[in-house]
């Protein structure tokens, strides 16, 4: 009975809802499409032959789809080497940073010692300092250590950060302190407490920090640019510059290389999206 009365307004409400969300989708689609276009052009251009690069049509024409461009990239530059170097540097930085930061975070979050909070504040204040200030002295340090133009020279300055310590401390503070007491009663050492109890419980934080650090160092440009001389030791961002130099002007090959450097990121992103978004949203708690 109520249905009979309710039916006409509900239908019109549904119609309104339909047009509202259809409009919403139109805006979303238009925006995504626009944002996505450069990538479409990138992939298509990477499949063109050199003569067709400047042509108006985005599609490869008579020359066909030149998948061989991707092989040509490896022939012209040691692309695989660059890729491995990038992964190597980013992995080591990530490992070192997650390890040292989690230990320091443990000391700040779970241990009681005199002056802890003051030291932590001091620590935090180093986050304010812009990286640019340290670049020139760090370069001199690298000269002294003989690490210029080496991969360890890229890894070391990036491996210790106050930010990681801060982020993990925030995560560790959320773990109930009853666990520490229970561990102490059981006679567990602090190391056992750290390694077997706190660290596994901080896993989401560790993953977040790991993704941030890895991505940041995979993209890193300034420091490798300053440090590296030998082509064999180039990382990906430095190596990509080759196709944009006077030595290599082939846009199609550049686009193939760019595509290959972006695709791993896309895979990482799609797989780890959940952690990443959580991490970004949690990281802002410091504000």
């Amino acid at each position: 009975m109520t249905d009979h009365h309710a039916a006409p307004p509900r239908r019109s409400a549904n119609t309104r809802r339909f047009f509202n969300s259809a409009g919403l989708h139109v805006v979303l689609i238009a925006l995504s499409f626009t944002l996505f276009l450069p990538f479409v052009w990138m992939v298509l251009t990477s499949l063109k032959s050199l003569e067709e690069v400047g042509l108006e049509s985005w599609l490869p024409g008579e020359g066909g789809w030149n998948f061989s461009n991707y092989i040509e990239v490896f022939r012209q530059i040691p692309f695989a080497r660059y890729f491995i170097n990038s992964i190597f540097v980013a992995t080591w930085v990530t490992l070192l940073q997650v390890f040292t930061s989690s230990m320091a975070a443990f000391a700040f979050a779970r241990l009681n010692w005199p002056g802890r909070d003051k030291v932590f504040l001091l620590y935090l204040s180093t986050m304010m300092l812009p990286g640019l200030v340290m670049m020139i002295p760090n370069y001199q340090i690298m000269i002294t250590l003989g690490l210029v133009d080496t991969l360890p020279g890229l890894i070391l300055p990036a491996a210790f950060s106050a930010f990681g310590t801060f982020l993990l401390r925030q995560f560790m503070l959320t773990i109930p302190s009853a666990l520490d007491e229970a561990a102490e009663i059981d006679g567990a050492s602090k190391w056992r407490l750290f390694w077997d109890i706190i660290l596994p419980m901080t896993r989401p934080g560790l993953i977040t920090l790991a993704i941030f650090t890895f991505m940041g160092n995979y993209h890193s440009f300034f420091w490798p640019l300053v440090m590296l001389r030998t082509q064999e030791r180039y990382t990906l961002p430095i190596g990509l510059l080759y196709f944009d130099s006077s030595a290599g002007q082939e846009t199609n090959l550049l686009m193939a290389a760019v595509t290959m450097s972006i695709v791993p990121l896309l895979i990482v992103f799609v797989v780890l999206q959940k952690y990443l978004i959580k991490g970004i949203q949690l990281g802002a708690v410091k504000g």
Binding site: T100, A104, A107, M134, I136, P137, F160
Partner: peptide
């Protein structure tokens, strides 16, 4: 003990350069 690895790094590559 827990702080040392990180703090040594921060001192060498952040505080000293600054």
């Amino acid at each position: 003990f827990f702080l040392a690895p990180n703090i040594i790094g921060v001192l060498t590559f952040v505080v000293f350069p600054v």
